Simulated scan of single mutants.
Amino acid sequence: MRRPSLHSERLLLRPLDKSDAPSIEAICSQRAVSENLANVPYPYPDGGAQDWLDREAKGLAGINMAITHEGDLIGLIGIKASSERTIGDFVPSIGYWLDLPFWGKGYMQEAVSRLLDWYMPHEPTERIRASVFEDNSRSLNVLQKLGFCEIGRDEGYSIARGTQSPQINLELTANRYKEAMQ
C-alpha cells in the first residue's frame, strides 16, 4: 500500500526515511516512552532505529509513518496486520509513541484520528484493535475518545520493563469510529 503524506491541523504524518533514525533513537531512549511499548528495548541500542527502518522499508513492520510537527519528528504511528488471523477474520492493530514534550496536548489523538480517517475506508476491515498497559492511562484515554472499547484484559510482555504487565485490549469498529467522529 502506498503511504501518502497526511496533514492534520498541527501535524504531518509522512512516510519514514532513513534520516529519521537519530530522532527515533533519541526518543525511544527515554524510559518513559519505551516502557509503554511491547517491542522497544530500554536502553535503546545504538543502530536499533536503522535496523528497524530497514525492516520497515521491506514491508516487514506494517504500515508506519512519522508524526512530525513543524518539520521535526515527534513520534511514530503504525498499523500492522493481525498475527492471530482466523479464516476470514482480518483484524489489524494500531500502535504509536510520542516524544515526552508533546504528551498531554492532544497530538496523539490528532495523529490517530488522521491515520484512521485515511486507513479505514481503504482497507477491507470493519475493525481495528489496540492494546495498552493498564498503567498507561494517557494512551487508553486517546483510544477511548476515538471510540475504542475494551474487549478483554490479559498480560503483555514489555521488553523495556523486562516483565509481563497487565494490559487492556480494545477494539474499534468502523461504525463506532464514524459515530465518535460526528
Results as ranks from 00 to 15, higher is better:
M1I: 13
M1R: 08
M1S: 15
P4G: 01
P4A: 11
P4F: 03
P4L: 03
S5W: 05
S5A: 13
S5H: 07
L6Q: 01
H7E: 14
S8Y: 01
E9F: 05
R10V: 06
R10G: 07
L11H: 02
L12S: 10
L13R: 02
P15V: 01
D17G: 15
D20T: 09
D20W: 08
S23G: 15
S23F: 04
S23L: 13
I24A: 08
I27C: 06
I27H: 01
C28V: 06
C28D: 09
S29A: 12
R31F: 11
A32W: 05
A32K: 09
S34I: 03
N36L: 11
A38R: 07
N39Q: 09
V40D: 01
V40L: 13
P41G: 05
P41L: 13
P41T: 06
P41C: 11
Y42P: 08
P43G: 08
Y44S: 04
Y44L: 03
D46A: 14
D46K: 14
D46Q: 15
G48D: 13
Q50D: 14
D51C: 09
W52L: 07
R55D: 06
E56F: 10
A57D: 12
K58G: 03
G59P: 07
I63M: 03
I67H: 12
E70H: 04
E70P: 00
E70I: 04
D72Y: 06
G75E: 05
L76M: 10
I79K: 00
K80W: 07
S82G: 14
S83A: 12
E84I: 13
T86P: 00
I87D: 14
G88P: 07
D89E: 10
D89A: 09
D89F: 15
F90Y: 14
V91D: 05
I94K: 04
I94P: 02
L98I: 12
L98G: 02
D99Q: 00
L100I: 15
L100P: 02
L100K: 15
G104Y: 04
G104E: 07
G104P: 08
K105W: 08
K105I: 10
G106Y: 04
V112A: 05
L116N: 06
L116P: 03
D117K: 07
W118P: 01
W118N: 00
Y119P: 01
Y119N: 12
Y119A: 09
M120D: 08
M120C: 06
P124E: 11
E126Q: 03
R127S: 02
I128F: 13
R129N: 07
A130R: 00
A130C: 11
F133P: 01
E134K: 11
D135I: 04
D135A: 14
D135R: 15
S137H: 13
S137R: 12
R138S: 09
S139D: 08
N141Q: 14
Q144H: 09
Q144C: 11
K145C: 12
G147R: 02
F148L: 08
C149D: 10
G152Y: 07
E155A: 10
I159Y: 08
A160I: 06
A160C: 11
A160Q: 01
R161A: 02
R161E: 00
G162K: 05
G162C: 14
G162R: 12
T163A: 15
T163S: 11
Q164F: 14
S165V: 15
P166G: 03
Q167E: 14
Q167M: 15
I168P: 00
N169G: 05
E171Y: 01
L172D: 03
L172S: 06
A174N: 11
A174F: 06
N175Q: 14
R176L: 12
E179A: 15
M181P: 07
Q182I: 10
